[in-house]
Nucleic acid binder design. Structure first.
Length: 832
RNA sequence: GCGGGCGUGGCGGAAUGGCAGACGCGCUAGACUUAGGAUCUAGUGGGCGGUUUCCCGUGGGAGUUCGAAUCUCCCCGCCCGCACCA
């Protein structure tokens, strides 16, 4: 028996057989419950590394497991194929982005097949294919028709590295580009936006329903949407016919305002400076503040600066005159671009008045006592409390204070309640070549006119000089640029920007359902059957990018009546990263580990096993080749076991009915308790690493049985049952090995991947006798083996106290209590 | 600064109030063998002049409990998110 499992031969044979027998191709079937398993499709920038591979392997295990549970599983794959890297690589290497992309797709497809992932390859899509982006453009038109796509002039994020604009979500917290890490600047441009803010409330509210999403992701989206309820209060500017609107969530502190600060960009500022002796000084300050980079400007550690404008305004509640300052810590793009300074109750305002020697006034006292004297304050007290020094509002507390002040403001026309969001509209224009052209034309007579649906797709021209120059490469193609106005028939000019690739990926999960459908983005009946995605697997880095955009798209499509649900992804598993040298794998840093050499050396199943066994799916782990040997060892161990036992299992006289001895009952118990654990670990907890640990225990139990009972004496029926369960239970994890064992070694008909997931026998899991830990005062002193049916505590007590070591530990002391945890332990509480 | 997560053998990790270290890697010994980087078996947290009978041990400290890696509080460290958001 020193033959070895020829994984290379078996794996390629079964991959071919699966493809030939169309095993993973699925169609809607009203008679069966569906299960949509989706992994985030990759950006084809080269080969897949272990980070991607982990994603797809986790998804594959879950897909195969659900198929064995009787679901009609759809499991598709495609490519997020538009994007800057294709263009950058093409510029560098002189290849066309399309050629580069399709070559990478070819490589990745081969890798995925090599790993034995159960995709329905007929459903493969590439977002750069005209058959796909035609519908991306169609969805743009849908947005436009619904008033959700609009063009506006704005100061937008500009990434010099990518030579294009970016959406807010695509600028990292430190002010750098999410893709290339360049510092992002601002540029005044006229651009296309999607009105995602219109859905802010629903995007926020529906997060509560996503019970099977990680709390972390929901929190990140909540923070990103950033809803805050408050009021905008109008402060009339003294001596001018103007009001300064000030947004606050703390209207209960309005009597504590001692200054008002406006952003350097505030549109009212020029008016304040007309004929103002301080104008020159203020302008210089404003120029300086606006010249600061975004990063410096928004850095919390920097000391706040400001300058008095020379004007005052009137607090409409107290009637008091307060100075208007311009200050760099006030942001134009949040709230109204002006804040009321309440130094006693806001730390930023506190620091500001300490620096510029402005007054402060305490207007909130703690609920349970007196407040501090102004002179004693060393920091602002931002807590809610009881209003004081606030005229008619004195004594009001908490919510009541907020509500009554807001009511008063609205009632007297001094301002209005406002719900403000941090979320901004989604900037989707990109000044790059390799993307879906925005299907609009500009006509001198008719303005911006959408391309008629029947004229889609607006094809990306092949021959364009796509070297970045800060303007859209498409503008260099006269043939592309020239268009006819769909409305008046006159000469017109095409939009030359392409769409953010996140637009493409916001709906790909729908295209999979009707991948070659010519009559629409997807067939509504297909979506009705397959949607929503039951399980989505992908990296957490898309928490507020792709996952927010997709939710927005789904809601729009729901409003349009094309889908029935407003949420695309029911269950989300954010798999951890595979690290190399403590950081995410990166091709540019040369820390990318690819699966190919390991598949060649150990087989796809061993790579799958090693990847899954390294840790829980949602946690990061450092890649190491160390485990590969062990993974390959387990594959061989299973194979040898089945080869050794199959003859015994195949005996015609292999009935389960033959009486079983202690060894048999022990093996059967190990089999079924391991199976029970695997079922819970895969199906409920999604802890695939411990499911595999259970599978290993199962196999170890078989070897242990083989040690004590020689082959010819082994219980043929039990051996047969064992092999049947084992091979089915490892099938989702080690699909090639399981198929080889099922069909070739066990000689069964049909694919193991079409077998039901084995059910564990609760009776078999029960032990005949159990070993209890016996503790004295919580310390384990001995163990006691008793019949599992023993329920009589008196007998248990007697037996436990009869143990030598227990007797000694208890001797001479009084047993106060006996605590019994059934099946686990007995604890005697004695006097110290 | 705010919010969240984490901290367990030489290593990856297991145990979510009940026998700490499952499972695996690595290591040690043995068996088989011409050979072993194959395979199988056993051992493997630390301490001890007691090696089945004792003590210690889950970042540190306190607490709750018959019993704490697990719950509570304080502290330390690492990671992630947010960060002048008015």
């Amino acid at each position: 028996m020193d033959e070895r499992y020829n994984f290379a031969q078996a794996e390629s044979r079964w991959q071919k057989w699966w493809a030939d027998s169309r095993l993973y191709e699925t169609e809607p079937d009203g008679a069966r419950p569906k299960y949509y398993l989706l992994e985030m499709y990759p950006y084809p920038s080269g080969q897949l590394h272990m980070g991607h591979v982990r994603n797809y392997i986790i998804g594959d295990v879950l897909a195969r497991y659900q198929a064995m549970n009787g679901y009609n599983v759809i499991h598709p794959m495609g490519y997020d194929a538009f994007g800057l890297p294709a263009e950058n690589a093409a510029i560098k290497e002189g290849i066309h982005p399309a050629a580069w992309t399709y070559e990478n797709i070819r490589i990745i497809r081969r890798q995925l097949k090599m790993l034995g992932i159960s995709y329905d390859w007929r459903r493969e899509v590439a977002s750069c294919h005209p058959g796909y982006y035609r519908w991306t453009q169609w969805l743009f038109l849908l947005m436009h028709r619904r008033g959700l796509a609009y063009r506006k002039h704005a100061a937008v994020n500009w990434c010099p590295g990518c030579a294009t604009v970016l959406a807010n979500e695509q600028v990292s917290g430190d002010g750098t580009c999410w893709r290339c890490d360049s510092p992002v600047g601002k540029k005044e441009l006229e651009q296309w936006f999607f009105r995602i803010t219109e859905y802010a409330d629903r995007l926020l509210a529906d997060l509560d329903g996503l019970a099977h999403w990680p709390e972390r992701v929901r929190t990140m989206q909540r923070n990103w949407i950033g809803r805050s309820e408050g009021v905008e209060i109008d402060f009339p500017v003294s001596g001018l016919d103007a009001v300064l609107g000030v947004f606050t969530t703390r209207q209960d502190t309005v009597y504590g305002v001692t200054f008002v600060a406006m952003a350097p960009e505030h549109p009212l500022l020029p008016k304040l400076l007309e004929g103002n002796p301080r104008a020159a000084e203020v302008r210089e300050y404003v120029a300086q503040a606006r010249g600061m980079s975004e990063i410096d400007r928004t850095s919390g550690v920097r000391e706040k600066t400001g300058l008095f404008t020379g004007h005052h305004c009137r607090n409409p509640l107290s009637g008091e005159a307060v100075p208007i300052w311009v200050a760099d810590y006030v942001l134009m793009d949040y709230g109204s671009g002006a804040v009321m300074g309440v130094p006693a109750h806001d730390q930023r305002d506190f620091e500001f008045v300490k620096k510029y020697d402005l007054p402060l006034r305490v207007v909130i006292h703690p609920l349970d006592g007196p407040g501090p004297h102004e002179a004693d304050l060393t920091a602002a007290d931002p807590r809610y409390g009881r209003m004081v020094n606030s005229g008619p509002f004195d004594g009001l507390c908490l919510d009541e204070a907020l509500a009554q002040v807001a009511d008063h403001i609205e009632g007297r026309g001094l301002g209005r309640r406002i719900v403000h969001y941090r979320l901004r509209d989604w900037l989707i224009s990109r000044q790059r070549y390799w993307g879906a052209p925005i299907p609009m034309v500009y006509c001198d007579a008719c303005g911006a006119v959408p391309v008629p649906e029947e004229d889609l797709p607006v094809l990306l021209p092949d021959t364009v000089d796509f070297r970045p120059r800060g303007a859209s490469p498409l503008g260099t193609s006269p043939e592309f640029l020239a268009a006819q106005c769909p409305r008046c028939g006159g000469g017109a000019r095409r939009e030359t920007d392409t769409m953010d690739t996140f637009v493409c990926s916001s709906w790909y999960y729908l295209r999979y359902l009707s991948p070659r459908f010519e009559g629409g983005a997807f067939r509504p009946v297909d979506a009705a059957y397959w949607m929503p995605v039951d399980q989505y697997v992908g990296g957490v880095e898309h928490a507020v990018l792709h996952l927010l955009y997709s939710r927005f798209f789904m809601k729009v499509l729901c409003d349009e009546g094309l889908v029935k649900q407003g949420e695309p992804f029911v269950r989300l598993l954010t798999q951890g990263m595979v690290l190399k040298d403590g950081a995410a794998m990166s091709k540019s840093r040369g820390t990318s580990v690819v699966p190919d050499p390991m598949v060649a050396a150990y087989g796809a199943d061993a790579v799958r096993l090693n990847t899954l066994f390294a840790g829980p799916p949602d946690k990061d782990f450092e890649w190491t080749d160390q485990g590969m040997e062990g993974a390959a060892r387990f594959v061989g161990r299973v194979w040898r076991l089945v080869r050794l036992w199959k003859g015994r299992a195949a005996l015609p006289s292999a009935p389960m009915g033959a009486p079983m001895g202690g060894e048999e009952r022990r093996l059967r118990r190990a089999l079924h308790s391991s199976l029970q654990r695997m079922t819970a670990d895969v199906g409920e907890r999604q802890n695939l690493n411990t499911a595999l640990a259970a599978a290993m225990e199962m196999v170890n139990a078989a070897y242990a049985y083989g040690e004590t009972v020689t082959l010819s004496q082994q219980h043929a029926g039990l051996v047969a049952e064992f092999l049947d369960v084992l091979v089915r239970a490892i099938a989702p994890f080690l699909p090639h090995l399981a198929e080889e064992l099922w069909q070739v070694e066990l000689g069964r008909d049909g694919s193991v991947h079409r077998q039901p997931w084995p059910a564990f026998d609760p009776e078999a899991v029960k032990a005949d006798e159990i070993t209890l830990a016996v503790q004295v005062n919580g310390k384990v002193r001995d163990r006691l083996t008793v019949s599992a049916s023993l329920a009589d505590q008196a007998i248990l007590r007697q037996q436990a106290l009869g143990l030598d070591r227990i007797h000694r530990a208890v001797a001479g002391r009084t047993v106060r209590r006996m605590i019994v945890v059934p099946g686990r332990l007995v604890n005697f509480v004695v006097d110290e």
